[in-house]
Structures are given as structure tokens and as C-alpha cells.
Design a protein around this nucleic acid. Sequence first.
DNA 1: TGTACATCAGTGAACGCGCGTTCACTGATGTAC
DNA 2: TGTACATCAGTGAACGCGCGTTCACTGATGTAC
Lengths: 195, 195
Amino acid sequence: MTTNLSRKEQSHERIVEVASRAIRRAGYHGVGVADIMKEAGLTHGGFYAHFASRDALLVEAMQQASRENRIDLSASMARRMAKRDSRFSAFVWSYLHDSHLESAEHGCVVAALSSEMMRQGDDVQQEARRRVKDLIAFVRTTLPDGVDAGQAEVITATMVGALQLARTLGGHAGRSLLAHTREALLQQYQPFSLT
Amino acid sequence: MTTNLSRKEQSHERIVEVASRAIRRAGYHGVGVADIMKEAGLTHGGFYAHFASRDALLVEAMQQASRENRIDLSASMARRMAKRDSRFSAFVWSYLHDSHLESAEHGCVVAALSSEMMRQGDDVQQEARRRVKDLIAFVRTTLPDGVDAGQAEVITATMVGALQLARTLGGHAGRSLLAHTREALLQQYQPFSLT
DNA sequence: TGTACATCAGTGAACGCGCGTTCACTGATGTAC
DNA sequence: TGTACATCAGTGAACGCGCGTTCACTGATGTAC
């Protein structure tokens, strides 16, 4: 099934994957059509046989980024849960991991783009809203028993904000901010865990 | 003192003020040299008599934005504290106010730009780090007695993240997220207040 | 008080460059008989 | 199995446009005597 893709579909997939990394690394403005096509091993002229516009690519790239990240995140959480971490604690440690600071291009697309989202064209903005809602919904699935579902929004805001501030600060200050945030979240929402 | 500025200094100030609003409204990439000069009532050619480069303007614009916002924020907090709000509660309500959602151009520069900060040139990034540290330091001054100073980082992350997610979601969903965040912060850090 | 000159802030045309988008074309793949 | 043709994915030159930056110039302001 995975290999049952036509030549064109394979190219399409490659372009979207490259773009999904590019927007997380460099932002919406950071990489142009020509660069992405080049990194996908093609020339820029063929772009419009695949997408109606640059914005259409951005939309697909965000979806792809979200899918990839969900897979990585789930894998990381599974590894931690296998070692008796709670689901919430596994999530907090996976999302707010030091490695998420440098590897933005494989990280959460909401954290990578949040302050730019509200300034995009309609289609991109609509997809951005979906990405935010999706992230909040996922966080909701990690809440420990007894925690109000409304807290998912607050926890999402805290994690996204922490990642961005930590990335801006960089170095030790960034890692320290991340550690404080992990501690605070675990303390507050899961004070009796062993983590 | 305020009016003791030379003609050139007045122009300079006007350009920086315009730019400080422009970057918060449209992001670092959002507005160009020519637009800013035009909005300041000048032509683009004169720009380099005022600034060594576009980045140099961005740095000054961030400082100006920070100053303006600090003044507005302090005024808003003072009004609330006059009505017996605690300093922390006054801050939470002022920063996470619904009006801060739409009026990004007069709001917090860190919230307006955070995910773009790490992708700027060295000088801009350095100033961005200062803005983040400054914001955290200010939040620290609002902490209720007995709250650990390290929580300032977490609270800052929560507020910045909440503002961004709320702006992206927009409308009722955005205001609701903001309300949940206010509630959670006040509940957690000031559970015995009357707010 | 008036004149001559120097300084200064701002003007507007021009520069090179990179961008998103279009399009006529090519060369490979697939289909018909 | 081989030949002829149609379809298709990708190429690369070209487009208009807006950007940051430079620069020769202008017109107003300030200074010297």
C-alpha cells in the first residue's frame, strides 16, 4: 500500500515532507517554492502541477508535520509508559524534552509557528486553527483522572509558550526554563506520582 | 525635556514608534522599510540616515514596544489595584484581557513575535532574549508572597502561549481559552483571593 | 538687520536580488494494434 | 514482439513585483560677519 504510489504521488509526498520540515525550521516565510522543490530533487517549474499555490502547499505541510509529530510523540510516550510512567508524565517529558529545543524541524508545528499563524492567508489560518484544536484534544487525552478537561487548554498554552521562550533564550537558560515548566506541570496535575 | 528633540530626533522617534506597532501587528517580515517610512510621513530614501540597517530598526522597535507596553500594563494594573485587586491578579487580568487579543499592535512584543524570534539575525535575537528575560523579571515582581521565584518562567510561558493560541483560534474559542487560563493561574497561585 | 555660506534632513530615481507564478517545451512512460 | 502515438511528469527560461539598500541631489535651517 505504501509503495503503491504513482511516480507523481511519490514526488508530491516528497515535496510535502520537505516542506513540513522547512516550515518548522524556518517559518512560513523562511523557505520558498524553489528551495523546497530543489531539496525534493526537482525544479521549481513543476510545482504548480502539484499545488494550486504556495499556500496550498503550506496547508498540506502543516498536516504532514502534525502527523509525523504525532507518530514520534506517541512512540516516545510509549517508551516512557513502558517504564511505568503515567501517560501524562510521559507526555510532559516527551513534549518538553531538551531535544525538542534544537530539533524544531521534527517537532510540534504549533510551537514552531504559533505567532505567525494569525497572519497567514485564510486557508492557512483555517488549517492552523485545526492544528491548535487537535493539539489541545491530544493533550486532553493525557490528563490524569480527576483533572478537569478545560485544563487541557491551559496546559497546551503552557507547553507551547515554554518551548518558544526556551528556544529564544537558548542554551542553559532555555533548558532551565523547560525544566521548571516540567516540574510545575507534574507537581500541579500529578503531585502523587513518582516521576 | 520631551519636546527638546531636534527635528531629526523627532523623525527618528516617529519612525521607531510606527515600526514598534508594525512588527507587533504584522511580524518581523510583515512590513518593509518603505511602508514604515511612509507611515511616518517620510520617503524611504531617508531611512539610512537614521538606521544602519533594517535589523537596527527592528532592535529599536522592540525596545520601544516593550517600553510602551510596560506603561500601558502598569496603568491598567494600577487601575485594578485601586479597586483592591492584588498585584498578581491585576497583572493576570491586564495581560490576559480580551482586548489584548485584537490589539496586538499595542500589546506584548514577546507574545506578538515569539515563534519568529529564534529565526532572526544576531542583533535582533539578542534583543529578543532581553525582551523575554525582561518580561519574566516583570512577572516575578507580581508573584504573591510565598510563591517560588522560579514560577515566573512558567507563568510567563503560560500567558504568552495562551495569548497566541487564543489569537489563532479567534472568536469565542479564543476568549474562552483566555478565560480558562486566567482562572487556572489565579486558582493556582492565589487560591484565597476574592477575585 | 541683512547677506553669504555651510550644514543638514529628507527626496526620489535607481541598483541588484529573490520571490511566486506561468508557459512552451522535452523526454520518459504507458497504451493500442 | 514490435512499432506509432498519446499521455504525463518534470524542465528551465521568463514574467512582474516588491524588497533592502545606495546615492546624487534639493530645499530648508542655522551660523558668521
